[in-house]
Design a protein around this nucleic acid. Structure first.
Length: 531
DNA sequence: AAATTCAAGCGAGGGTCGAT
DNA sequence: ATCGACCCTCGCTTGAATTT
């Protein structure tokens, strides 16, 4: 209820009904039963409120605007939460909804062919169809813009990050968000038809421009997905070379920022006016002191001309001497240039990345390869993991940045906790030792991007040869490393592999034998099973 | 359309054996 | 005798397939 001028306004029936629907929907999806009398009581209430509303409507006492939009502040909090929870999907999807002013159902089917690079600094989004226009005859194009000041609400950055993290999947589908389902796969010709290069250029620029922010998030939350972005996480100097190229300065391509609504101009003008007003006020405030000073000065002149000394003349002389002295010292210091400049570079030292080795991190009476709060990145695809295997990862520890050694150099005993050891042994080591089988690499070897790609392609070819049964269809494309590790172990190959694969297995060792006895386990359930 | 079944994917526990 | 490496195998979740 809302009271205006003594009149009591009611929320419309449908407005409140939607809250009821929401409660019912949540209880259904979460499979939590509502109290037994809930529906009985609510039915009664609904019926009576409907009547109350009908009466109020006759008097014109029903609120016209039902739905309250989410405010910008709340929206930012949601985005912040999504980032903190490592939920990139919510981040990018919400931004799309906000920027396109679209229902989720209209964002969901977005494909590469819906997004084109605009004439200057925008991306143009043209949906195939909308709720009211199923044939797509009247769809209109919308421009979306990056936000250089606030990476959190920057849709282009979000899109860039999302594309980069889902690169493997997006190689074979055009759909940004939908899993590839029954719809036909697109052909190569179609991809070429909608060349995404322009979009990807803007995306790349966003990642470069906001790389510091991305790095900060990645190191703040151990195991965060941002740590999997190749551009910001590896040793290559590509980022350093790109950084100076991405600026906000005008260029022939982008002479000025577009898409800025006219009222921004007014805001800026108003700010200038306020500034001028402030200046006027300050100078008026100063008038009193100025008048006082002038009178005092006149008196001093009189005293000085008479050859006398008073306190203010003495102070003036002393100040003059102090200033002379300061000038000499400053000059001396600037002539001793090297000393000053070393100090300067020293203060930037906090930004440098320290290469961590087996004994860099000291805690719990021992030395370790990783800091206390280290976590392996979650949901790692084969390609992302391969990069970490050979290049390691960057972390922040006690305010300093460290580069963790390539994961291939980890020994299980260098990892501090059982869950890390376990995870490493089960998910990382099996598949990547198989992939890097036969490679003789120096400890210090850090492949460049090109070398890494070649290593990966070679490794994949060997895998296709050794484990052909995995590649008979496309099921392995979305596998995370844990599944790769499991499905390439000898026992699995012996069960599912082709004869050819079985022949290529390494000779069985005494470990490669089924356990003699059935074993029992105690498992801690994350969600207890409903009985 | 709802209920039920099925299997892939994933995380995790722990037996066994060689190295120290 | 102890420790760590190796890798086998289980249970749960989830989403698709199938049946009711």
């Amino acid at each position: 209820k809302k009271i205006v001028d003594g009149k009591t306004y009611l929320k419309s029936f449908d407005d409140l009904r939607k809250y009821y629907d929401a409660v019912v929907w949540v209880s259904k999806t979460s499979k939590e039963k509502l109290p037994e009398n809930f529906f009985v009581e609510m039915d009664k209430w609904k019926a009576s409120y409907k009547k109350e509303c009908a009466d109020a409507k006759a008097d014109g006492r029903v609120e016209e605007n039902d739905a309250e939009p989410i405010g910008a502040a709340l929206f930012e909090m949601i985005l912040g939460w999504a980032i903190a929870e490592n939920n990139i999907f919510v981040w990018v999807f919400s931004l799309f909804q906000w920027n396109l002013m679209a229902r989720s159902i209209n964002v969901d089917p977005l494909s590469f062919h819906n997004i084109k690079r605009g004439p200057s600094d925008s991306l143009e989004v043209l949906p195939d169809k909308t709720k009211s226009d199923q044939a797509g005859e009247f769809v209109t194009m919308k421009n979306i813009y990056g936000n250089p000041l606030k990476p959190l609400v920057n849709i282009m950055l979000a899109l860039a990050v999302y594309i980069s993290l889902n690169a493997t999947r997006l190689r074979s589908t055009e759909k940004l968000f939908q899993e590839e389902g029954k719809q036909a796969r697109i052909s190569v010709e179609e991809v070429l038809d909608h060349d995404p290069t322009g979009v990807l250029q803007l995306c790349l620029a966003q990642i470069v421009y906001h790389s510091d922010w991305l790095k900060e998030i990645a190191s703040h939350y151990p195991g965060h997905q941002f740590g999997l972005l190749p551009l910001i996480s590896d040793n290559s100097d590509l980022l350093q070379r790109l950084k100076p190229l991405v600026t906000l300065d005008p260029s022939p391509d982008m002479p000025w920022p577009t898409g800025i609504p006219p009222h921004i101009r007014h805001s800026i003008d108003i700010e200038k006016v306020i500034e001028v007003c402030g200046d006027v006020k300050t100078s008026l405030d100063g008038l009193n002191t100025t008048i006082g000073d002038t009178i005092r000065e006149a008196i001093n002149d009189k005293v000085r001309s008479d050859g006398n000394v008073n306190i203010s003349i003495l102070r003036e002389e002393l100040n003059g001497m102090r200033d002379d002295f300061a000038r000499v010292v400053t000059q001396q210091l600037s002539e001793a240039g090297p000393f000053v400049s070393t100090r300067d570079s020293g203060s930037q030292g906090d930004d440098t990345v320290i290469d961590a080795d087996r004994s860099t991190f000291l805690y719990d009476n021992s030395s370790w390869s990783v800091p206390r709060d280290f976590a392996f990145p979650a949901e790692v695809t084969l390609e992302q993991g391969f990069r970490k295997w050979f290049l390691g990862t960057e972390v922040q520890h006690e305010g300093r940045k460290y580069r963790i050694m390539p994961f291939r150099l980890f020994a299980v005993k260098d990892l501090p906790y059982d869950n890390l050891k376990q995870h490493f042994k089960n998910n990382w080591r099996p598949i990547f030792t198989r992939m890097a089988d036969g490679l003789q690499l120096n400890q210090d070897y850090r492949p460049t991007d090109a070398e890494l790609k070649k290593l990966f392609d070679d490794a994949m070819n060997r895998m296709k040869d050794r484990f052909s049964f995995i590649f008979t269809n496309r099921r392995s494309e979305g596998w995370l490393i844990g599944t790769w590790s499991k499905n390439t172990n000898p026992m699995h190959v012996r069960k599912h592999g082709t004869d050819n694969d079985k022949e290529k297995l390494p000779p069985p060792t005494k470990r490669n034998r089924p356990h003699k006895e059935k074993r029992s386990f105690s498992v801690i359930h994350k969600k207890p099973r409903k009985s």
